[in-house]
Design a protein around this nucleic acid. Structure first.
Lengths: 338, 338
DNA sequence: GTGGCCATATGATACGTTTCATGTAAAACA
DNA sequence: TGTTTTACATGAAACGTATCATATGGCCAC
């Protein structure tokens, strides 16, 4: 592979001049610039980014650590990240940690070793203490981080409480009084939805029936089994709020299996708006999370932080809260039960 | 950040010894190894992979260029790639080209500049000539490449012809004679499915009715509109074979919109087995593509090629054809029309 | 014609590794 | 004991780039 030295020789100029041409420095005569550009083309020269990284201490790549790209929530998030990264000349290193603490640690170390300029950590399980250590080495943005001990860090979150409360209000407005909740695995966003469920009931003057709260696991299957249990109740719910779409779709399936209809017999409300939500039968009424924006905002935040770090100016950590949107489709209807 | 030199100094040994410890060379005494390891821990030293890449000419990272991670087909593919890559100490650089020739070129150049050891190109649109040029710089594996001029390259494909033919046979065996086909955008895999459709009809002695062949675009919407047209025909089909699941789901929706039932009135057959296929109503009978395996096989092939290149031994290009699987669910039934 | 100034070009140096030729001391042998 | 072999350890050199102090030459003012 040809190097800058080869280019310099071929163009009859010095190494420094080639460097100046490559880095768009103004102090190069038209003539030399032309000679260098010609030589680059002729030799088919490509810069070696490893050498550049070694010298400048900037790899122009960022890492994205997510639970699992197969989870229908994350492709859009990662696309948002990638678009912003690439638009700014940054490459994206993708890592799936399967919500496994150890894998997460390993990936972080790996990205640091790869000289990533920054890392976006989605649903991190590491401790605030560890985050501080990482920040000493590269920029960090947290997405949907556990809230208990919010560390000094940039982060992006979704206002799940507001989104869920809003959805609950709609259910109540449609006359539903017996509303079940299928929750997910414990997490900040999960507990926000749970709290909003309780608060929503209270706001409407409905007493909580804890038998209507079921523990799911964010997957289709648990939505199905939880719903089957709910349907066996003597006084079954007229609406089900599932903490994510996958469980909501499982719920619809369980309702159909029982020979009942959605939304005529039971209304089903989801959360997330994964692509399948619009296509299932009936189309799922759900709370849309701004998935792409989660990714693009995180990436923007990260790039700003990287730029600040390079310029040695520390500005305060930012905290972006994105809003949800209630998407009214076909799976929720007015309560028919007098 | 501490460097190897700092470690060497702290441990009271030479640079070479530290390097030998880091690279697991056997020729280091237990004593020195211990001293070095202690120093590494104490200083919290991390290797600088940019320097290593510069020296060894191996970045231990590979690129994956796909159309779009949001397309439900690709998350699993990319997960397959990532698992294999990471298991072998390679990082994954993810790029979405939106099936745009220019973006594809740009990403390839970018990956080469980043010193990627290899690139997996999914549905590439570049020319065989260009592929040869890239191969001079790094390993390449092609997935679902246009077949017209198969270049000298490793590649992974799916036997779409066989998979589709098999599915067509099932439709015929169930008594269907008027079978419609909704095709996708022209591509190798697309035309295989089309050919298998024609061949399947011929094998069963059914004459082709070109009015039953509609041009879709692999998206939900085109499946819906094509089907709506088909349903308006005086002698409408009893089965629809869509070239992918998204269009099949659109077809089901169109059929429902018309007040008809799947599979009682019309059978619908998909292709791909995206995650939503199992969850839609009725669950979609479809031809499963081994998506994860497409990714993992490609990555394995690529790593082998990289290893061979490093060892200077050129072995013949490999050509892996993966098989599909017919998944019989609920959207296809026996033909009711006497 | 001289001195000073600006614009541009030069090339040595350093970044953090790996590698390899060379050095050293202990072990093995005669 | 003296010589050869073995086992490790050493540190200089090189990978391809960016940077910066220094050099060069053209231009202007006096």
């Amino acid at each position: 592979m040809p190097t800058m030295k080869d280019v310099a020789h071929a163009a009859g100029v010095s190494l420094g001049t080639v460097s100046n041409v490559l880095n768009r420095m103004p102090s190069v005569t038209k003539e030399n610039r032309g000679k260098v550009e010609e030589a680059i083309k002729r030799l088919n020269y490509r810069p070696n980014s490893a050498a550049r990284t070694l010298k400048t201490n900037a790899s122009h790549s960022i890492g994205l650590i997510i639970p699992d790209i197969i989870n229908p929530f994350y492709p859009e998030v990662s696309r948002g990240v990638e678009d912003v990264a690439m638009r700014n000349g940054y490459a994206l290193l993708l890592c799936n940690n399967d919500r496994n603490r150890e894998k997460e640690r390993k990936y972080i170390d790996y990205l640091i070793e790869k000289q990533a300029d920054g890392i976006i950590l989605v649903k991190p399980s590491i401790t605030p203490q560890e985050i501080v250590e990482i920040q000493a080495r590269c920029a960090v943005v947290l997405v949907d981080a556990p809230g208990e001990a919010e560390p000094a860090c940039d982060f992006v979150d979704v206002d799940d409480f507001r989104g869920s409360l809003n959805a609950m209000k709609m259910l109540c407005d449609l006359g539903h009084r017996r509303i079940a909740f299928i929750e997910g695995i414990a997490s900040k966003s999960g507990s926000s939805r749970h709290e909003a469920y309780l608060r929503g009931l209270r706001d409407c003057g409905i007493e909580v029936d804890y038998a209507l709260i079921k523990k799911g696991a964010y997957d289709w299957h648990s939505g199905h089994t939880c719903t089957t249990e709910l349907l066996r109740m003597p006084d079954r719910p007229t609406a089900i709020f599932a903490a994510n779409d996958l469980m909501a779709i499982g719920a619809i399936k369980a309702i159909h299996d029982r020979g009942l209809k959605v939304p005529e017999d039971i209304s089903v409300l989801g959360y997330d708006d994964i692509s399948m939500a619009a296509l299932c039968q009936p189309a799922l009424t759900t709370v849309r999370q701004p998935k792409y924006e989660i990714g693009s905002c995180s990436a923007n935040l990260l790039l700003k932080r990287i730029a600040a770090a390079n310029a040695q100016d520390a500005y305060p950590f930012q905290n972006i809260i994105l809003e949800t949107e209630l998407l009214i489709r076909d799976s929720v209807g007015r309560c028919r039960k007098a």
